[in-house]
């Protein structure tokens, strides 16, 4: 009965959306703001990866909100899951097989390196803080599954998170204090396609990379952690 009702409702809504989709032409260049970003992107922000320049400088406030959401989710998660209990030594966990242990011990640094590369070159090549952070987090996930007994130190992960977020805000406030607007790109833009170009964008993306990495690792750590 309930399946039928929801089916009918969804069909009506689908009909409405299909009708409204008719007015939106597909695949032809209909963009207004996007054109401006593509044409002026490089000389205004100095980053060759236009998506990164949009994410960080043009719509930087969104990304600030974005980080806050991740931070809220992490804090909310740990609040709901209750007190953080270290895993007792005596707990019996069957040790992972030898191949898995050596494999993950070998892969862990490589993954960290790949993650770091991605968020450092965020403004040049596709990828950035979020993707790099996610890779680092999956590196930690691999470490949990592979080599047992290794745990990230909770205090360091908090300090990394807070520093990452604070650098973003401080950069924004510096923009404010020098009389311009919040999140103004005050560092020199440098010439494109070099590592040190695009003003504050790489700095922000590195900070975001660290923050997202430690946060997602913290989330996984809380979830895996056995607590009463």
């Amino acid at each position: 009965m309930r399946k039928l009702i929801s089916l009918i409702l969804l069909v009506i809504i689908a009909g409405g959306i299909v009708l409204s989709l008719k007015e939106i032409p597909f695949g032809i260049s209909k963009i207004k703001i996007g054109d401006y970003y593509i044409k002026k992107g490089i000389e205004e922000t100095g980053a060759t990866n236009i998506v990164t320049s949009v994410v960080v400088s043009y719509r930087g406030f969104d990304t600030l909100g974005e980080i806050t959401i991740l931070f809220t989710a992490a804090i909310g998660l740990s609040a709901v899951l209750g007190t953080y209990r270290k895993r007792k030594a005596g707990e019996k966990v069957e040790p992972p097989s030898f191949i898995v242990k050596t494999g993950c011990r070998f892969l862990f640094p490589i993954l960290l390196l790949v993650g770091a590369y991605i968020f450092i070159h965020g403004h040049l090549t596709p990828g950035g803080g979020f993707q790099g952070g996610a890779i680092i987090a999956s590196a930690f996930l691999l470490m949990y599954l592979g080599c047992e007994g290794k745990r990230i130190n909770e205090n360091t992960s908090i300090v990394v998170e807070v520093l990452g977020a604070l650098t973003f805000i401080v950069l924004g406030i510096i923009g404010l204090t020098i009389g311009k607007d919040f999140l103004f790109n005050f560092l020199p833009k440098g010439e494109p396609n070099t590592l040190l170009s695009a003003g504050i964008i790489p700095v922000i993306y590195i900070a975001i990379g660290f923050k997202v990495g430690s946060e997602l690792a913290g989330i996984i750590d809380h979830l895996i952690e056995k607590n009463q």
Binding site: T68, I69, T72, G76, A79, V80
Partner: peptide, 20 residues
């Protein structure tokens, strides 16, 4: 979109606080 992002912050923090 910024309205949506802040709206999400409001919602997620109220989900967690209801379950506090």
């Amino acid at each position: 979109f910024n309205l949506f992002v802040f709206f999400e912050i409001l919602c997620i923090s109220s989900y967690s606080l209801v379950a506090y």
